[in-house]
């Protein structure tokens, strides 16, 4: 077991605002690492940096021994990091199945022109007739429990299920590391339990996970370790129970000044 992902003194400035400040941490192979912190602590920014949505101002990111600091989002994904979004970013006019299939296209690293060629000269690549891809996509939909919606337009699916669809889509890229940005936001208690099960099932298959979560029940239950961000800085790290009782963390959540307690 070694670190699959390491960040070294990662910093991101937006104009005068430092959203992520000097954050170093590593994520062990096979681990579920929880990332918590009050609103605006820089959690999503950190995930955006790792996934290549934008480059950091300072610091480096290493994935499986390779420097991915400056890699773009699509490259980062092909290296083995997939992500979901805080507010779902599914393909709303495609069906659930097509959403997952879309994630499998560039697995073959072909590029557009070779796909154009395929569309004329290789009948098997007409999506609905590609049995192998469809079978894989179907099994993923089944895995996250939404196979009932296979041919439904993603935009018409219930919100809770689009979050699952997004996870299925991310899994279709066969990631070694999955970044989950608040997978439980907007879910009711029953859906919450299902989501926890799902995340643990994914982890059990060997995928390392970095998860942002506000719902304490979820994050305490599934994380092997926790990292706490506050105003962009890492203020605590360690086992969930220990971090939860850390005075610094308690203060960050309840607010140092009294007005937050009212």
């Amino acid at each position: 077991m070694g670190a699959i992902l390491t960040t070294d003194r990662l910093t991101k400035n937006f104009g005068g605002l430092t959203a992520v400040n000097d954050v170093s941490f590593s994520l062990e192979q096979g681990e579920i690492l929880g990332l918590i912190g009050p609103n605006g602590a820089g959690k999503t920014t950190l995930i955006n940096l790792i996934s290549g949505a934008f480059p950091p101002s300072k610091g480096t990111i290493t994935f499986e021994g390779r420097d991915i600091t400056r890699d773009k989002a699509h490259t980062v994904n092909t290296l083995g990091i997939a992500r979901t979004f805080q507010v779902v970013r599914i393909f709303s006019r495609l069906t659930a199945l097509e959403n997952v299939l879309a994630a499998m296209v560039d697995r073959k690293h072909k590029g557009p022109w070779s796909l154009v060629w395929d569309s004329f000269f290789r009948r098997a690549c007409a999506l609905t007739e590609d049995k192998e891809s469809c079978a894989t996509a179907d099994s993923l939909l089944d895995f996250v429990g939404i196979s009932k919606y296979r041919d439904e337009q993603a935009g018409n699916m219930p919100y809770a299920l689009t979050k699952r669809l997004e996870i299925a889509r991310a899994l279709a890229t066969q990631p070694k590391l999955l970044l989950l940005d608040e997978p439980s936001s907007g879910l009711n208690p029953a859906e919450l339990t299902g989501q926890i099960d799902l995340i643990q099932k994914i982890n059990a298959q060997g995928t390392s996970i970095l998860i942002i979560e506000h719902v304490m029940k979820v994050i305490m239950g599934i994380s092997h370790r926790l990292i706490v961000l506050h105003y962009g800085e890492k203020i605590a790290e360690g086992e969930p129970e220990k971090v939860y009782n850390d005075p610094l963390v308690v203060e960050a959540y309840l607010g140092g000044d009294s007005d937050a307690q009212h």
């Binding site: 006019r93 959403n99 879309a102 296209v105 796909l115 569309s119 690549c125 999506l127």
Partner: peptide, 10 residues
């Protein structure tokens, strides 16, 4: 109807 088309729509 091909993988190319699905990519565009995505």
């Amino acid at each position: 109807g091909s993988e190319f088309g699905v990519t565009l729509q995505a």
